[in-house]
Design a protein around this nucleic acid. Sequence first.
DNA 1: CTGTTAGCGCGTTCAA
DNA 2: TTGAACGCGCTAACAG
Lengths: 341, 341
Amino acid sequence: MAVKKQPEANSGRATSYDVARQAGVSQSAVSRCFKQGASVAPRTREKILAAARALNYYPNAIAQGLITRRSNLVAIIISNLTNLYYPEVLAELTQRLSAQGIRVLLFSLAAESDVDEVLDQVWRYRVDGAIVAARLHPEQLAAFADRGVPVILYNRVGEGEPVSSVCCDSVSGEHALVDALVEGDHHVFGIISGPADSYVGEERVEAARRRLHQLGRDCQIVRGNFDYASGDASLRDLMRITDRKLDALICANDLMAIGAIDSARINFGIEVPQDLSVVGFDGVGPATWLAYQVTTIRQPVRRMTEAAVAMLIERIERPELSPEQRLFAGELLPGSSARLG
Amino acid sequence: MAVKKQPEANSGRATSYDVARQAGVSQSAVSRCFKQGASVAPRTREKILAAARALNYYPNAIAQGLITRRSNLVAIIISNLTNLYYPEVLAELTQRLSAQGIRVLLFSLAAESDVDEVLDQVWRYRVDGAIVAARLHPEQLAAFADRGVPVILYNRVGEGEPVSSVCCDSVSGEHALVDALVEGDHHVFGIISGPADSYVGEERVEAARRRLHQLGRDCQIVRGNFDYASGDASLRDLMRITDRKLDALICANDLMAIGAIDSARINFGIEVPQDLSVVGFDGVGPATWLAYQVTTIRQPVRRMTEAAVAMLIERIERPELSPEQRLFAGELLPGSSARLG
DNA sequence: CTGTTAGCGCGTTCAA
DNA sequence: TTGAACGCGCTAACAG
């Protein structure tokens, strides 16, 4: 005879057995009572719910997960949370997942090299799926496939590896920006890139460069790292390189555009957009502030997060589904940081 | 005879039994092998680790949690993630917890009224503790105590309920700001508050108001809601109320200060700080941008998150520890958005 | 509709 | 140092 603990002596940790005893039913009746479309007599149900409430009983999701093989946990892996653009994405994702009865296990990377440690934990917690906004190597992506854990990349694609992804279209976005700048009669073009390990950064820069080339324009490219300070630093570089003739600046994201605008006005005494046009990418909050009104491409965050969550849940329920890539066009916000055509 | 599945046929989900069989040892040997200071012969250990690697075995944290009664999960509950100030806090917290072998279950509230649903999930997942930056009712706080789940409030206090918390001192911060403003020879003071349901918002406003009163200064207070747009809107209100005589503005956070600065310059053609001094609170990134350089109080985020995590882990390990409130003084960033004494 | 039974994957006694 | 046996809290057949 097992020496069971007192039923409710240790407060706040009642089990389904405690509830069963209190309600005078079997443990499995309690289990069914907390399951969706299970058959329980109304009277029984009431007794059980009353007992559950009295004992402060909540089903143990850990135990449920062990047996159903569904943890209802999804990992969200984000490289640098502080990038002004992610908080909005993260909030949207968690709220949408929450609405679907899914909990978020958050992993934030201090350095890209931490990915392997993070994945280690992801496997241990038997998450049902993952949404990833960080660079993953092919073998890391393969690990997800091996384990049958569906994964959705956010603003990234699996280079080589077939994997589902949700992205904002860099090419059409940069085309729109470049076309508008060119029509606006600019002559000396500069580009501030993102860090070398950023997928969208490289993609945006390449798209802008090619489009400029197609239209017969040359450009200078300097490397930034997506933050405010690098907007300033890169602008200085470009002013030097172009002998201050720069009059159109394309930034790989809004934050650097803002840094460049401030630097132009304050450090160089240049008028934006009269003397220098600046465009960004993302459509983050500060881009719309009165002082900046950055001409940029706004990512359709709502639709993108909605798609990411929908795609993930689909694949959790039907693992055989093949990968799918969804590309959303951003919207050109004219702003007033650039003279357009 | 139970019909066991093929050992490794279903790839990527090996159990400790599979590893044991492959290594020719018992399951409990495998278990010990993955535990810290357990006694395993070096040769046995190697065999097991080799088998584990071959089978791609990772201990099931869910099952571990079920038996050890430690999920190694901590809930982080944040009301509005998009408040420019929280991403930094969230990133710090997750990284610090991660370093301690603890995973983060993230809950982001769309509305304060969602708290109860969130808590429901918190109980179900048997989290070891929680860090909360959202308003909790006394009965909600009591629920944590009932269940023996340690909780740390972040920039909030338990009103009535005894509960641990980590805060940045509003009183000393506002005193420093007000004192500096008063010495700077200002005459018409205005305050933009936070939303009514914000604890720090109310506290900061009250501290500023009292200090002004002590120094024999009167002030006008209008309600903001912590976002950029309300900085603009509230400034308009204050300009009207004071018949444009406002020359010192105290904002309950930096974001509103920035909104007010932009509005003053652009909508009213007022020079900041020559004609109007503006101060904020928090020390968020944009506050230091060249265009603003907001005079503000910088919260010591690193020390605060470090304290929160340390306090929480202490209480997870020693539940009998009584609540503790830690108050950190912020640092006055002089900036250039205000004429100080 | 309800109770009985058998595990989910692992940590933890207790002997050997 | 190792293995056998048990149980964490629950779901999922199955029989009644």
